[in-house]
Computed example of a mutant assay.
Amino acid sequence: MHSEIRLRQAQMNEKEIIWNILQQAIERRRQDGSTQWQQGYPNHGTVESDISKGFGYVMTVDNEIAVYAALILNDEPAYSTIEGAWLSNGEFVVVHRVAVDEKFAGRGIVKALFDHIEDFTRSHGIQSVKVDTNYDNTAMLKILESKGYSYCGEVFLAGGVRKAFEKIII
């Protein structure tokens, strides 16, 4: 049986479901021994802010929310200073706060998310996708490598140094 997978903007009435998924991800990072997301960010206010600004996106599997991500167009002040170099300086989509519901973990769902994000980027005529992650987030690092993202250097975000990646879409 084939599941229906969709990427769409999150709605304010879904913020509790999304916050729940983020809390699961925060706890998973802690159990993995990671420092990422362990200082009170992201939090409930982050989710509300994302949704109200139109940055919050959910990927649904048969209408059930499986993944949350913030997709931000051309705006990540931290990316203007990189130890290294981006592949491009055109328009870009920034991917932040990727979190998977435990029910959907281990099913390649984040790879599917990146496929959908790349389709979204292409359909909006945007040149590339930029993303950063913690040096100890091995799951995300493997996904980015498998999806053909290039390591561009390091960026500094609240909470520390992150590995920065980019993929040219058009």
Rank of each mutant, 00 (worst) to 15 (best):
residue 128 S to F: 00
residue 63 N to S: 14
residue 38 Q to H: 07
residue 29 R to K: 15
residue 84 G to F: 13
residue 87 L to Q: 12
residue 104 F to M: 09
residue 47 V to D: 01
residue 96 H to Y: 12
residue 130 K to V: 06
residue 128 S to W: 01
residue 120 F to E: 05
residue 100 V to F: 06
residue 103 K to C: 01
residue 105 A to L: 04
residue 125 G to H: 07
residue 51 I to V: 09
residue 81 T to H: 12
residue 82 I to A: 14
residue 72 I to W: 00
residue 29 R to M: 15
residue 96 H to R: 13
residue 60 T to L: 06
residue 46 T to V: 10
residue 59 M to R: 06
residue 85 A to F: 13
residue 99 A to W: 03
residue 86 W to Y: 08
residue 66 A to Q: 07
residue 39 Q to L: 05
residue 85 A to E: 15
residue 115 D to L: 03
residue 62 D to N: 15
residue 27 E to Q: 15
residue 83 E to L: 12
residue 95 V to C: 09
residue 75 D to C: 04
residue 49 S to Q: 11
residue 71 L to D: 04
residue 66 A to V: 00
residue 114 F to N: 04
residue 132 D to H: 12
residue 85 A to V: 00
residue 57 Y to R: 10
residue 101 D to K: 09
residue 65 I to F: 08
residue 92 F to D: 01
residue 127 Q to L: 11
residue 115 D to T: 09
residue 122 R to N: 05
residue 41 Y to G: 06
residue 60 T to M: 07
residue 65 I to L: 09
residue 66 A to I: 00
residue 118 E to R: 07
residue 68 Y to H: 15
residue 51 I to T: 03
residue 81 T to K: 14
residue 98 V to C: 10
residue 90 G to Y: 09
residue 93 V to M: 11
residue 65 I to Q: 09
residue 90 G to I: 02
residue 60 T to K: 11
residue 56 G to V: 09
residue 27 E to D: 15
residue 62 D to G: 08
residue 27 E to F: 09
residue 92 F to I: 06
residue 60 T to G: 08
residue 106 G to P: 11
residue 34 S to H: 13
residue 50 D to F: 04
residue 108 G to V: 01
residue 71 L to A: 03
residue 104 F to I: 00
residue 50 D to K: 10
residue 56 G to E: 04
residue 28 R to L: 14
residue 116 H to V: 00
residue 68 Y to C: 10
residue 93 V to C: 06
residue 86 W to K: 11
residue 56 G to W: 00
residue 44 H to K: 14
residue 73 L to P: 04
residue 129 V to Q: 05
residue 74 N to Y: 00
residue 124 H to T: 00
residue 53 K to Q: 14
residue 73 L to H: 06
residue 36 Q to K: 10
residue 32 D to K: 15
residue 96 H to A: 08
residue 72 I to E: 01
residue 100 V to Q: 02
residue 111 K to A: 11
residue 32 D to F: 15
residue 74 N to R: 04
residue 69 A to E: 01
residue 107 R to P: 00
residue 71 L to Q: 08
residue 96 H to D: 12
residue 42 P to R: 05
